[in-house]
């Protein structure tokens, strides 16, 4: 089943770029970004769909260093060995990484965590030696920093600290049908009350709790939800299904609407793993608030979209 999904995904990518001259490279790029490498079956699909010979596609795939025919690990580490980085001891950094990971350049660690490769220039020569990890640049890298970089990578370079990041704030949500609060103060995620929902998928029916911090994607659920599953969501109080009119812009799954205290709507994608969400604040800034005349709270200049008054 996985195989057939892979090939239909690939077909979709192929048709997207088929009209372009030299679209093959764009296709391969997109396939690689999906699978982290170019699987043989995907190359065959590209060949049949574009009406080219497999050897032509294979020729392109092997010509560019960017493409990999072997599965890569979760994290891709590229060490620059271009002229500028080379004279600044880029090779020693590469050697140190090889030693610490226990692999040679071009290989992947047995636990599929790291792939190491050397590249010829990353375009930041003045700040060499450069190490590129999952799109994050580390400049002026010294041998002693290598272990730190690896540690940071394992922690997740994209991860944000939900307790400190100013972009993360708590929201209070209620059911758009029965207006009951969805917050569950007895169950904490990220040290905040959670948003409790009832979900069902397949034969399973149980609870799911979302972090109430806007910007945090931490969830817990009674049953493990497999990746890419679309779940049906219900209010735990009125048992009405939370289903919106709109579909996810990224994956086309239905969006789950939840109302914000003080007005406004948050919609999150019902597909597990999809991080798409919309916050609609059209009615929720102070200007539109029914209580604005009586409200005594201190308001920031640009207005607030959420206030304590409705807790």
């Amino acid at each position: 089943m996985k195989e057939s999904r892979l090939s239909s995904d690939t077909e979709e990518i192929v048709h997207k770029h088929d009209h372009e001259l030299g679209g093959v490279i764009a296709m391969l790029e997109e396939i690689q970004s999906q699978h982290s490498y170019l699987p043989e079956s995907a190359l065959k699909t590209v060949a049949t769909e574009t009406g080219r010979s497999l050897v032509e596609i294979y020729g392109v795939a092997t010509f560019y260093r960017y493409f990999s025919l072997k599965p890569r690990g979760e994290h891709l580490i590229s060490v620059c060995l271009g002229t500028a980085c080379h004279v600044r001891q880029g090779t020693m950094i590469a050697k140190e990484l090889e030693d610490q990971l226990g692999i040679r350049a071009g290989e992947t660690t047995p636990d599929q965590q790291f792939s190491l490769e050397t590249v010829n220039c990353l375009g930041a020569c003045a700040r060499g030696p450069i190490v590129l990890v999952d799109g994050h640049y580390f400049s002026n890298v010294k041998k002693t920093q290598v272990s730190q970089i690896l540690k940071k990578t394992l922690k997740g370079l994209d991860a944000i600290d939900v307790t400190k990041d100013p972009r993360v704030f708590p929201v209070k949500l209620r059911c758009p049908h029965c207006n009951h609060s969805l917050l569950d103060p007895n169950y904490l995620i990220d040290n905040h009350p959670t948003v409790r929902l009832t979900i069902s998928f397949g034969e399973k029916h149980g609870w799911m709790r979302l972090s109430s911090l806007y910007g945090s994607y931490n969830i817990k659920s009674e049953y493990e939800i497999p990746l890419d599953t679309i779940v049906d969501t219900f209010c735990p109080h009125c048992h009405a299904e939370l289903v919106g009119a709109s579909a996810c812009a990224l994956c086309n799954a239905p969006m789950v609407p939840m109302a914000i205290y003080g007005g406004g709507l948050i919609q999150i994608c019902s597909r597990r793993g999809c991080k798409s969400h919309i916050m609609d604040l059209a009615n929720s800034i102070c200007v539109n608030c029914d209580n604005r005349h009586t409200c005594k709270l201190i308001k920031p200049e640009k207005g607030v979209w959420y206030c304590e008054e409705y807790v």
């Binding site: 050897v55 032509e56 020729g59 092997t62 010509f63 260093r65």
Partner: peptide, 9 residues
């Protein structure tokens, strides 16, 4: 036939 071709660089 296009069975064989150039590979690599």
């Amino acid at each position: 036939a296009k069975a064989i071709g150039f590979r690599g660089r």
